[in-house]
């Protein structure tokens, strides 16, 4: 079953002289159980692709279907509801609320959505990520890597079917990065989610089922030679 279908979507920022073709017309499908990597140089359109895939912004042309719902036909209110129910974002910049403690970041999500992780599930996840002792802390008191792991936990907390991660391992050391990758991979396989991950780190692609490269807004699939194991 395909969780995400992008049909002929493109994104053009601005107009006239300042026009940027951030995303050239693209077809893309993410099936459930797939962990997909998107690699590309800075400014190539990775974040643009990800925000369009998650219904954060509409493509200039084309359509985006999340669980068979065309989000390009919905208004912001309805897209926002789909993001809340179906999509988990792990953003490039921290997506933590500075005035909430780690545990309250989760409480906030309980305020706006039902059916989130149960306390024991949350506890397991926090242990896996090695942040179970940080629940009383504010984001300002966390290291960059800890923030990133909390952000990952937060994205998984609402049990989304589509996970979108913008460099989730950027400020983690390689051991921690590999651990996070296995958590994501396990999550995707066990719970039949789809995950798309933007990264610079080629070593991480071995955890991924498919690898795409994006250059100047042109997305294309590459053969994943590194794929040696499927955890």
């Amino acid at each position: 079953m395909s969780i995400l279908q992008i049909q002929n979507a493109s994104k053009i920022y601005g107009s006239g002289h300042t026009q940027v073709n951030a995303l050239k017309p693209t077809h893309f499908i993410a099936e459930s159980g797939e962990l997909i990597a998107v690699i590309g140089p800075s400014g190539s359109g990775k974040s643009t692709f990800l925000t369009i895939a998650g219904g954060l912004q509409k493509p200039t042309e084309g359509s985006v279907l999340i669980n068979d719902q065309d989000v390009t036909k919905l208004n912001e209110r309805k897209r926002s509801r789909i993001r809340l129910r179906e999509v988990g974002f792990i953003l490039q910049a921290s997506n933590l609320i500075p005035y909430l403690t780690v545990e309250n970041q989760f409480r906030l999500l309980d305020k706006v959505k039902k059916g989130n992780m149960k306390p024991n599930e949350t506890e397991n996840l926090l242990k896996q990520l090695g942040i179970e002792d940080l629940v009383k802390k504010y984001p300002a008191d966390l290291s960059g890597g800890e923030k990133q792991r909390v952000a990952i936990a937060k994205a998984l907390y609402t049990k989304p079917s589509l996970l979108l991660a913008d460099e989730p391992t950027a400020s983690l050391d390689s051991n921690r990065a590999f651990e996070v990758m296995s958590i994501l991979s396990l999550e995707v396989k066990e719970k039949n989610k789809a995950a798309i991950m933007v990264t610079h780190d080629h070593r991480l692609t071995k955890y991924c089922d498919k690898v795409f490269t994006i250059v100047d807004g042109q997305l294309s699939q590459t053969v994943n030679e590194d794929q040696t194991e499927t955890p």
Binding site: R77, S80, R83, R85, L96, L109, V112
Partner: peptide, 15 residues
């Protein structure tokens, strides 16, 4: 920007 992050997660303007 904090509100933007929350909105990205799907928290509504109404909330």
């Amino acid at each position: 920007s904090i509100f933007g992050v929350m909105k990205a997660q799907g928290i509504s303007s109404g909330f």
